[in-house]
Design a protein around this nucleic acid. Sequence first.
DNA 1: TGAAATGTTGGGGCG
DNA 2: ACGCCCCAACATTTC
Length: 445
Amino acid sequence: MTSPSIVWFRDDLRLADNPALRAAIDREEPIIAVYVLDDGSSGLRMPGGAARWWLHHSLASLRERVTERGGVFLLRQGPTAAVISELVAETRAGAVFWNRRYGGPERELDTGIKAALRQRGVEVRSFAGSLLFEPWTVRTGSDTHFSVFTPFWRACLALPAPRDPLPEPRELHGPRTAPASDDLDDWQLLPTAPDWAGGLRETWEPGEPAARVRLREFLEEDLPHYDTARDEPAAGATSLLSPRLRWGELSPFTLWHDATRQEGAGRFLSEIGWREFAWHTLFHFPQLATRNLRREFDAFPWPRLKPTRLAAWQRGETGIPLVDAGMRELWHTGFMHNRVRMVTASFLIKNLLIDWRRGEEWFWDTLVDADDASNPFNWQWVAGSGADAATYFRVFNPELQAKKFDRDGHYVSEWARDAPTEPIVDLGETRKAALAAYETMRRAR
DNA sequence: TGAAATGTTGGGGCG
DNA sequence: ACGCCCCAACATTTC
């Protein structure tokens, strides 16, 4: 009589360095891998359109890899807690393992599931797989959490080094008869009418093997001049690993292990540090996507939304070349170079005076790498309302930014060749209006 | 992980 | 040779 182990996959769509999967292997019972597509009833934020496209293909890749190794990979849809509970009953599973999540609704859900299963005598264990440093382990001298990045990251680096990554299993043994699974196509994660995913297909190959290829390539070819070239959107020198980390195709432990062995990786690793900082911030402030972290920004006098301006920004029709290039890269590829993200975000917030939440929602729907922490965190960083944020009066001038970081215009001509050239707003005047609005907010305190 | 305004300095043209 | 002015180039302050 067997009592299978369930490995519940979530934001960790990989075989290598997967501690939950490792624990199941060590338990030496048949393994049932499962991914649950929640129907939204649990308060979780559903992935946006581009993210669903990625999820589909990453799941397809992982399922194939599990199957190749003799395992089973199930797809189930419904309210998460009920789905897991039913699966345990149906398979008479003796254990459920997963890697931890750090968002508010996710933690609440996972805690409840853990308690309920344990009450039924099921072994439940969760593991650290998605963050190098778990939020409750990084504390200031006065036992609070950090609100400034530099001391935060210094404190992380002073902790015991992240563990070595775990090897990828060669074989997985499933139960004699596989439980039923949904058909991935029935989940309708891919866009159909219209199919707008052509640019995504041209740009990306989701899945763990391609993630590993890109990591190798980045470390060998791009990391040596990451410090300078990373700021130039046409240089192609950024890692492009953000969606790999978002979906867990690549473990941060693997990244850490490989990068720290190379000279001059400090800058890149500190970018990984910003990802950690964003997740820690979300852990301590679960409403990050909807509420200003700095409450004084609640008094910011956002004018009534002008939908045509928001639409012009979304479509890359602002008449500002670097902004339009960025927004078109985003629409086409599901990705935008980091510096251009800052410029387009600054333009929406400070030149169009549109609430950062509208921008956050658009990026959520169009980015393949948007996650619950980094996306709202970075929007609040630009808005000035976030943790260790840019002060509001730091307004990017997209023309100057283009001059500094896209001197030859390669990026703009790649993405905004036929974009309008008449700016919808005057950069100088709108900058002044934004500073005045900021001043109004400060006086309102 | 800003930009613009304002201040300072120093070389060169010129009377 | 000198003072004056102009203005780049850089530094500092302010938003």
